[in-house]
Simulated scan of single mutants.
Amino acid sequence: MFCGGGLMTMTASARPHDFFVTGTDTEIGKTLCSSALLHALAQQSLRSLGLKPIASGAELRDGIWHNDDVDSLITASSVQAERSLVCPYLMQTPAAPHIVARNEHVTISLPQIVANYQQATTLSDAVIVEGVGGFCVPLNDDCDTADMAQQLALPVILVVGLRLGCISHTLLTAEAIRSRGLRIAGWIANTVNPDMLYLQDNVAALEQRLGAPLLGQIPRLTGSATEQVAAAAACLDLTILK
């Protein structure tokens, strides 16, 4: 498969603490959960490093382009790395990546993303790679985020945004993940709508149907970003990850 000018080669990781984080949609808490995973891994004395290879929506501050998701991963990581390693494709406009990439003349290369991941493994004990949007977001005319996940060949942690419609979104996403030959190592229930009717019944339905362990349920959190990450990490049980 060609995507962004390079031939794809599958890479399988034997590292037990490396995961790809995806979600049932955009704005459902992938970054919060990815940051919480990094925080929890660091609490286990593991050198943790978060990557978000593609991010759209950036603001120039003190001569540096910042993205809130990227900044959160950098803060939560116990290993500090160059921003270009953490996020090789940071685009300015907060919109669908393939549209922004085209308009900003950016060519997204999956080989580069794989190379960044491989470099990250030399710096850390645990790498969390956060996707962009949902699982099948286009990156250009030839590939999408599912291709990216497939080339990284990492176990997947699925973030489920608890709101109306989450059961169907979750099961369809799980089906797409498995169709790429990827394993769902676990899932996280993140409360997007605290007023959701029958919230716990929805969680129970997913536990019954998803065929993957629930790592934790995160309530709607308040406080600073750092406080929220620590509180979310406390909700997770990483001992059940395999």
Rank of each mutant, 00 (worst) to 15 (best):
Y198C: 10
S109T: 14
Q151L: 08
L37T: 04
D18T: 05
D69C: 06
E82R: 03
I188R: 10
V70S: 12
S168P: 02
M1K: 13
L123P: 05
L214G: 10
R163T: 15
R220N: 11
S45D: 08
N116V: 07
A234R: 01
S179C: 01
Y198F: 14
R209W: 07
A230S: 11
D71T: 10
L164C: 02
K30N: 07
V132T: 01
V127H: 00
D68I: 09
L162C: 08
P219A: 10
L32G: 09
L85W: 03
L221C: 09
N202Q: 15
C166P: 15
T9I: 11
V70L: 13
A126W: 06
A174I: 03
K30C: 03
A176E: 05
S48F: 02
V132Y: 01
R15N: 08
A120T: 09
G23C: 10
D69Y: 02
I128N: 11
V100F: 02
A96M: 00
Q43A: 06
I240Q: 09
L7T: 11
A81R: 13
Q228G: 13
I128E: 04
K242N: 13
S45E: 12
T191P: 11
D68C: 09
L152N: 05
T24F: 03
V156I: 07
H169E: 01
N140Q: 03
T75E: 14
N190A: 04
S109Y: 09
I128P: 06
G186L: 08
R220D: 12
T222P: 15
G223D: 14
S124N: 11
A234Y: 02
S84T: 04
T226V: 13
G181S: 01
A233E: 04
V129D: 10
Y198Q: 09
L158N: 08
Q112R: 00
H169D: 01
H105N: 14
T226I: 12
T122P: 02
A149Q: 05
L236V: 06
V160K: 03
I108S: 01
S48A: 05
E175H: 09
I99V: 08
